[in-house]
Simulated assay, not measured.
Amino acid sequence: MTGKFFIGAAALALGAAVPGASVQGWLNTVVETDGGHRMGDPDADVQLIEFVSYTCPHCASFEKASEGILKLGYIHEGRIGVEIKHLIRDKADLVAALTTRCGPPEKFFGNHTAMMIAQDQWFAKGRAASPAQRTRWGSGTRAQQYQAMASDLGFYDLMATRGYDATELDACLADTVEADAIRDRSTRDADAYGITGTPSFVVNGATLEGVHSWPTLNARLYELAYD
């Protein structure tokens, strides 16, 4: 891997323009897929699937490390299409997934990044939750449980910074049909690709063994997209 790419990628991560490319490139091409969301050129030679969990600290670390370079160094220029799929581990993970998927598909990636970047903050709220709060998370209807957890973890405040009001998020968290579909698709996709942990990655249909961090994945992507 050449130093030229890392110099260019670092500049991109800091917000430098891509010579000869439009301001947004392929970053505005976002669609909802069967079980996930994809950003980028659907016909790019390299198609990456990220399996992530919102309650996985390694997934948050991956998002923080990869977000700038992956979007601006790969997706922007049409070299890679990236799809994010959920691997649901627990109720908090499901509530977070319902939250990030709220609204039109084009808002998902921003919601996803915001949720991952704020993970430390909402983890802290979860650890500090009172017995009464934890009781609310398992009492009443499923919609009430999800809304209570989202409120106590700070998801309503987080999504307000993304332009959502409480009524809009209430409706998304009350969608138990979507909640069941997210769980079902998570199980189906994990079985189909042999995914047992997060983050895990699939490139052009093949699950990458032993690749669970941005530096290792970046090396693979660079070989495929630039060599």
Rank of each mutant, 00 (worst) to 15 (best):
Y164N: 04
Q147W: 00
I75G: 12
E168S: 14
F51N: 11
I84N: 12
S61E: 09
Y146P: 01
G140Q: 02
A166E: 10
W214P: 09
R89Q: 13
S200G: 11
L158S: 06
G15V: 14
S22M: 04
E32Y: 01
K125V: 09
I80T: 11
G20I: 06
F51A: 12
G140N: 02
Y74H: 09
T113F: 10
G103K: 13
D93P: 11
V31F: 01
S200H: 00
T141C: 07
H212S: 15
D45W: 01
P131A: 03
V82I: 11
D227I: 10
E50P: 13
E77I: 07
A21T: 11
S22A: 12
C59Q: 10
D170W: 04
Q119L: 06
V95R: 09
D43V: 04
L12W: 05
T196D: 12
V52K: 08
E106M: 09
V177K: 09
F6M: 07
A129C: 07
D170L: 10
Q121K: 12
H212I: 04
G73K: 02
S139H: 02
T216L: 14
I84V: 15
K64T: 13
M115A: 15
S66L: 10
R162K: 13
V46I: 14
V23K: 15
T187W: 00
G36V: 03
A174E: 01
G163R: 10
R101C: 03
I7K: 15
R136C: 00
G40W: 05
V95L: 13
A10R: 14
R188L: 08
D157Y: 01
A171I: 06
G78L: 01
T55I: 12
P131G: 03
R136Y: 00
E83M: 11
S200K: 02
V30Y: 10
Y226W: 05
T198C: 06
E63I: 03
D157A: 15
Q144R: 09
V23T: 13
A129T: 06
A118L: 05
R134H: 02
G205W: 05
A143V: 02
G194Q: 04
Y193L: 01
L208S: 00
G20C: 08
E77R: 15
I195E: 07
H58N: 09
G205R: 03
L224P: 03
E83Y: 10
D120H: 11
K4F: 06
Y54N: 05
R162P: 08
A190D: 07
E168W: 07
A129W: 06
A60K: 09
D175N: 12
E32S: 09
F201C: 08
K107Q: 11
A16F: 02
L87P: 01
A181P: 00
T2N: 12
A132D: 14
R79N: 04
L153T: 05
K85Y: 04
V46P: 06
L12P: 00
A174C: 02
A17I: 02
Q144G: 10
A92Y: 07
K85T: 10
K85R: 15
A97K: 02
Q144D: 09
G15Q: 13
P104G: 02
G73C: 10
F155T: 06
D45M: 07
V31W: 01
R185Q: 15
D45G: 15
R127G: 02
A44I: 06
C59H: 08
G205Y: 05
